[in-house]
Design a protein around this nucleic acid. Structure first.
Lengths: 337, 337
DNA sequence: CTGAAAGCGCTTACAG
DNA sequence: CTGAAAGCGCTTACAG
């Protein structure tokens, strides 16, 4: 392995000077800089990341901590992983992925190793023990999501309120007044304290009051079959039930489209179905293609990594950001029958 | 930060002795071991991963390198990421994810930093420049996939031949003789040299000859709509076309089910559709639920990480493994009409 | 069984 | 602008 010492010897300078040109930390005369640079090129020198980390007390490694869940991570999560990694990479950072338990024990163990400069926390619960672990360990961190009290904590999240309102606007614009909010994932651990569910449900309650909407909230499980989903959402009755459903969770939305059709409801002739927070490629999977609000997975991954890096680099902080999902037209919503 | 020196002072021993008990590398008398252990507990000592890495010349970090693609990574890829990370974690390793270009330049840059002990390479092409980079850099690596000449290279992959044969067995058992192999992803960069496509297509050719099957191969793109897919696969004709389709790529399989129905074909009354290599949860998304071969994403992630770690730990090597997809019954396949 | 010491490959005050 | 040297927190021969 070619070390800084080899380069220094080859160029006839001290290793300090080599370090200065590698890092650009101190002025060096053009002549010696050139000598060093050509030595580096000739010898094929590459700075050792580990030695640099130890000496500078900064590893330039970020951790993406995600809880081990019963349900598989969504497509949005992959986008999230890869976009966070890409954003980190642009800044010269690495991203390690840490599967950790919800209680924070493993996380405490891992941050204690001092391998990472900061942590990005995914799938945040309203009262998340892992946040306390990070705070008490003094590790810089950013949340993807929000705890109940988010004051002073660096975070990015989906703007569930804005997303829901935009979705409702779309449906009321089509004449719908009786809406169902469908929450997938009932019975799962942490379901009742999972931010996206709680915040969307709260916003729906609010909208119901403020916007003169007849709304009901339906909680369903992962294992409900399509027909059962459709019956739970639209009811057995022929009339008086919801004419449109807003579905949090793309998998559930797709199955609901199937279920509606199988139970004799035309989509969107009889009922409209709209996916709240889904990956865009999901839309084409249903028949008719699902109208949906696209989850800003890549944006959140990028923003989260960037916010954390700014803290670490002591740059201007990125203010907390709430990013709404964006409307993606499909054919599963239409005028009220 | 509590260092080994702090522990040594507190316990009244040398740091070498502390290191011996932390690592279990040398025998230490029970008495002093206990003293050291209680000192560690009292002070809350945790070994610094970076210092250990530098001194031991092993970082215990693995990289998962994946190419930046046009298409989003599949659900199987997430399973892959997380299971590789979990397997690494069990062995005391960390996993960093590296988005790298296909040409191998970025990869060369990254391995040069010596941050990782080994690399796991995903989405391997038949002639992959990144493999040459890894070989010439002397970095231990394992492939998820196979290059054209795989001799002596540590790898794990899907057993496409076995998977295809099992799928064909299922369909011929139902009486089908006219089969279509559908390959999604036409026109994508690297499509023609992407292992899964090439190997499945070759195995299909082979099967066609050996098993007295009337087969056709249909290549389709990501953007083909469902109806177009169905027409390309099953033809315009009323009779004489394929009665069953094997579809490589779950997204395409789901759209084909929709397309078949929309073009007036009953599934599985008129045509059978089987997904080759798909995530199990995908099955329930179509109507009827897709019969599919489940991609062994978690198994491959686990095996890949384990194989690499065994190389690094100089343990008994894990032999190359080809893992077939497993049959998941659905309702999209049935007897030949 | 235990310790003193060299060394991993860098960064960074401190001098000059 | 450049260098000598301490130091980051460990591991690991080498002695004893």
């Amino acid at each position: 392995m070619v070390t800084m010492k080899d380069v220094a010897d080859h160029a006839g300078v001290s290793i300090a000077t080599v370090s200065f040109v590698v890092n650009g930390t101190k002025p060096v005369t053009p002549a010696t800089r050139e000598r060093i640079e050509s030595s580096m090129a000739e010898l094929g020198y590459r700075r050792n990341a580990v030695a640099r980390a130890l000496a500078s007390r900064r590893t330039r490694i970020l951790a993406l901590a995600y809880p081990v869940l019963e349900r598989p991570l969504s497509t949005a999560s992959v986008e999230f992983f890869t976009s966070a990694a890409a954003a980190a990479s642009v800044r010269g950072y690495h991203l390690v992925i840490w599967p950790v338990s919800n209680d924070g024990r493993e996380l405490a163990e891992l941050v204690g190793q001092r391998l990472v400069d900061g942590v990005l926390l995914m799938e945040v619960q309203l009262d998340d023990p892992r946040v306390a672990v990070l705070e008490s360990s003094g590790t810089p961190f950013a949340l993807i999501g929000r705890t109940r009290d988010i004051t002073g904590i660096c975070h990015v999240d989906i703007d569930f309120e804005a997303t829901l309102h935009q979705a409702i606007d779309h449906l009321t614009g089509l004449g719908h007044r009786r809406l169902a909010l469908v929450l997938g994932g009932k019975g799962e651990r942490g379901y009742r304290t999972y931010g996206p569910f709680v915040r969307t449900a709260a916003a729906f309650e609010q909208a119901r009051i403020e916007r003169d909407i007849d709304g009901r909230t339906v909680e369903v499980t992962w294992s409900d079959d399509p027909e059962s989903l459709a019956r739970q959402v639209f009811g057995e009755e022929d009339a008086g039930g919801p004419t449109a459903a807003l579905v949090l969770n793309d998998h559930t939305a797709l199955r609901l489209v199937t279920g509606a059709r199988r139970t004799g409801r035309r989509v969107p002739g009889d009922v409209s179905i709209l996916g709240l927070s889904a990956a865009p490629e999901t839309g084409t999977l249903s028949d008719p293609p699902l109208t949906l609000m696209r989850t800003p997975g890549p944006e959140l991954g990028h923003l989260g990594a960037e916010a954390l890096i700014r803290m670490l680099e002591a740059e201007d902080p990125l203010p907390p950001r709430l990013v709404p999902c964006t409307f993606e037209p499909g054919q599963s919503t239409g005028p009220r029958p």
